[in-house]
Simulated scan of single mutants.
Amino acid sequence: MAEERVMLVDGMALLFRGYFANSYGGYIRKTKAGLPTNAVFGFVKYLLDACKTFNPTHIVCCWDLGSKTFRTDKFDGYKANRPAAPTDLIPQFDLVKEVVTGFNIPNISFPGYEADDCIGTLSRQLSEHMEVLVLTGDHDMLQLVDERVKVIIMKKGASNYAVYDAEKLLEEKQLTAKQFIDLKGLIGDTSDNYPGVKGIGEKTATKLLVEYVSIEGILDNLEQLPKGVKAKIEAEIDMLHLCRELATISCDAPVSCLPDDCFWQPDHAKIFTMFEELEFNSLVKDVSRFIAVS
């Protein structure tokens, strides 16, 4: 019997990637009735490819719910730079969850928390039972890596993944998963709109963490730092601590999922009917090939 492994899917990462990958030239895939489906089409292709590549026995899909979270309560500017979702994408937010349900995969989210927090929480819960694979395009998730949790970063191109365990993370980034949180505290995150310490880039931050291990270690050794680096950190200590809080994925969100609730057992007939309704004719062949070998 194959070893059990659960794939925790960052739903929004796949959906947005699917939208932009299938809207080039301004063309938006739609049903004959005019319902936009390009993002959902891309989502399904990415999901099936990941299933074929990593062969999970269990799957969960996690989602964001709106823009207000416990992080916006701490920092008004958090993600305030995000543009509004494209008009053609909006009706696909509910549609993609219907499709996930049609695959017999649970959708999990909770008000005030991001998909990252749901994934972090479930990774801790489910790693007690099986190996955990986190499927995302978001490098913030690297902080979740541990002995039982691997993070799969989707890269450009079909079937192109970077799989991080603790060894790979240390080899490529020179940091542990916990240090990755401190890195984001130091350098901030432009996509999430929090600044970190002004003037401290990734190269300098990584060097500091390799030498002093943590933000606390850096602060305990301020007198040893170059004068310019010391001045920058001293001027932004409060922001440094706040940014580390914003960067930290919560692993105690009020969500749960038992292994029996997320066993991957697709209903073939249900999927074919769903694809016919969505006019995903080319994917019928893809899913047929996949199911034949799964």
Rank of each mutant, 00 (worst) to 15 (best):
E236N: 10
K184C: 10
Y161M: 08
A158W: 11
V96D: 13
N160R: 04
P86Y: 13
P91Q: 08
E245Y: 13
G77T: 01
L225K: 09
N221F: 00
Y194P: 00
P259H: 12
V149A: 03
L183M: 12
K74R: 13
S288R: 08
G137C: 15
L208P: 05
L89K: 09
G77M: 06
C243T: 09
V255A: 01
F275L: 10
D192R: 05
E147L: 15
L142Q: 05
D182R: 09
A269C: 11
D192F: 06
D76S: 14
E236C: 06
G228P: 05
G199D: 03
P254V: 13
Q125I: 07
A2Y: 10
L95G: 00
L283A: 03
T121V: 12
L15P: 01
P111E: 11
G196V: 09
R289H: 08
L47P: 09
V149C: 11
R148D: 13
S250I: 06
M239I: 12
D88S: 08
D146G: 07
T57I: 07
C251F: 07
G188F: 06
A292M: 00
A253G: 10
N160K: 13
K97M: 04
Y161F: 14
E3C: 12
L89S: 03
G34Y: 12
K52L: 03
L65I: 12
F280W: 02
V134C: 13
F41H: 11
D189I: 04
T190D: 12
V255T: 02
S23I: 05
N193R: 08
Q179N: 15
D116N: 00
L186I: 00
L47V: 06
L283V: 03
D286T: 03
I271V: 15
E98H: 08
F54G: 06
R148K: 15
G18W: 01
E202L: 03
D146L: 09
G66T: 14
S191W: 03
G77L: 05
